[in-house]
Design a protein around this nucleic acid. Structure first.
Lengths: 333, 333
DNA sequence: CTGAAAGCGCTTACAG
DNA sequence: CTGAAAGCGCTTACAG
């Protein structure tokens, strides 16, 4: 393979001129530009970007560490890609599940210069196994903790959950079940808090008997449906912390001979694509997936460029969610 | 940041020894190993992988160019990651839709050494705008053409479509509609051929009136349902080229007051997660998503290592599909 | 098992 | 606008 020296020799210019042809073409005379172009074509020269990156000490890559099962991950990645492309970054993808055992593996890619920044779906807090000494080009996405060591882009899980439970209450429901998400995720606890806040505001007594622990999967929704169906008094509405579980609940309820929403209302969280195509269409909270991705990537670019305000950067940035009213919740009979 | 020279100086050894400590630790004496370890710890040294990659002329990265809307893409990527991890590769992800205009952008990453191989969801054939001069570390995944320039891992779309239409025919259906996928995808035409083969084998006259052009989206399924419902005679079964469209068809049929499968049978293709949770659960063809990914990555590794048989490597490798019988198709009345 | 030294292919002040 | 030269931080024959 031809290298920059070969091009320079054939063109009869210095390697500096060839290099400048790429990095600052306006600084190269017309005459030399023509010679360089011709030599490049003749030799079919392709710059070795491994060498360029090394010299510049830049990888032009960022890493996304995400749970590959996240239902709206593809939308988030689209948002990330959109910004990444305009800024000249390529995107690496790692599975957070694989990373469980060995978080450091991915964070070390920062130290080894393999990536310039990381978008992480898991918040790291002070006191964690892997405390980050400083703000080092990491953005936490879709996860929140008060004492996060990295800037955060997410939604207000508490307020969003509260909003949809408020809606159920406005429909006359007072006996409202709740199916939670994975316990180790902060979002689960935040949404639970929102659920409880809404009930308390309405003067409804909290009961742990109405709360079933889930894991965000469809199957656990199906199983939970049976439990909810057999509760006495049976809840008239169920708040599910994800659409996938809500879809499972609806299936499970139907299997129990119950109608949604006539006998029991079900609402979800996320607004995944299938939410609008279930039967009945799901009333849920929309998370702006693509915007979460693009915002996170924009922020990461600022971090990398050092163009951020250290005073405010750690203040979490909450993107708005929206209550999407469809057919799966109705007024209590 | 400390570099290898600093470590060598502090440890009182040569840089070669420090380098060997990483690449061939068995060649370093116990004594020196201890000194190196201590120096690394004191300086908190992290090897600059940008330099290492440059020196070795290896990026240890591969690129996946895929449509970010593909319903089972996440499963495929899991399969890819699994192999990539064991082989020491990291995975870059690019959106094929963005690439539409500018295919070369991604393929040039091979020339610039940024990636060592590419897994591409779009087959490139001789005569394309971007013909590949030779087998250069590219694997085509989930797409097929006879004159592909790269090795292929996919399923037999024709036989798979034929299999599920055979099944409908075995149920007594003879008036079978078909909703196709995106026209520019080879899979669409292959599956159509399978649909037609099955009909012909059964002595059923083909009719283009029974074929509606789709695009793999849920919404086009909903729209197509209306058309199918109004055909006279109305088809008693519909073969949809994707589960997403099948789910749309079922919704649309219900909206028309038709029951699935009592009034009309619907079958899909893919076996996405939601296929088993629709109402009724979808009868479909399962594509082994994860295996497609892991097989493609394994093959790519062989290509990169040069350990392949040039005689047979271009022979497409078809992974088996499976007919999954659930509740959305029934015997014709 | 070890070290001196060359080399990988670029970029970038610097001087002109 | 141009070129000579140093330098980036590693790896890798080579000689010992």
């Amino acid at each position: 393979m031809a290298n920059i020296k070969d091009v320079a020799a054939l063109a009869g210019v210095s390697v500096a001129t060839v290099s400048r042809y790429y990095s600052a073409p306006e600084k190269v005379s017309k005459k030399n530009t023509a010679k360089v172009i011709s030599a490049i074509a003749q030799l079919n020269y392709k710059p070795n970007l491994l060498a360029r990156n090394f010299t510049q000490s830049r990888s032009y890559s960022i890493l996304v560490v995400a749970p590959l099962v996240n239902p709206f991950l593809l939308d988030v990645i689209q948002g990330i890609q959109e910004i990444a492309r305009t800024k000249g970054y390529t995107v690496l993808l790692a599975d957070v599940l694989e990373a469980q055992n060995d978080d450091n593996k991915y964070y070390s890619m920062l130290d080894s210069r393999l990536v310039e920044g990381i978008i992480d779906f898991k918040v790291r807090v002070k006191g964690d196994k892997n405390p980050l000494a400083k703000i080092q080009n990491i953005v936490t996405l879709c996860d929140y903790a008060e004492n996060s060591v990295a800037p955060i882009i997410t939604v207000d899980d508490t307020k969003s959950a509260e909003k949809i439970v408020d809606y159920l209450i406005s429909l006359g429901h007072r006996n409202i079940g709740c199916l939670t998400g994975l316990d180790f995720m902060h979002a689960t606890h935040l949404r639970k808090l929102g659920y409880q806040n809404a009930l308390q505001k309405a003067g409804i007594t909290l009961s742990n008997k109405l709360i079933i622990n889930g894991d965000f999967s469809v199957i656990c929704g199906i199983n939970a449906a049976k439990e909810f169906a057999n509760m006495r008094p049976r809840p008239t509405a169920i708040f599910s912390m994800s659409d996938k579980m809500a879809i499972g609940i609806i299936q499970g309820l139907k299997a129990e001979g119950l109608r949604v929403p006539e006998d029991i209302s079900v609402v979800g969280f996320d607004d995944i694509e299938f939410a609008q195509y279930c039967d009945p269409p799901l009333t849920t909270i929309r998370q702006p997936a693509k915007e979460l991705g693009s915002n996170a990537m924009s922020l990461l670019c600022k971090l990398i460029d050092g163009k951020f305000d250290p005073e405010t950067v750690l203040r979490p940035y909450f993107l708005p969610t929206e209550l999407i009213v469809r057919g799966s919740a109705a007024a209590v009979k």
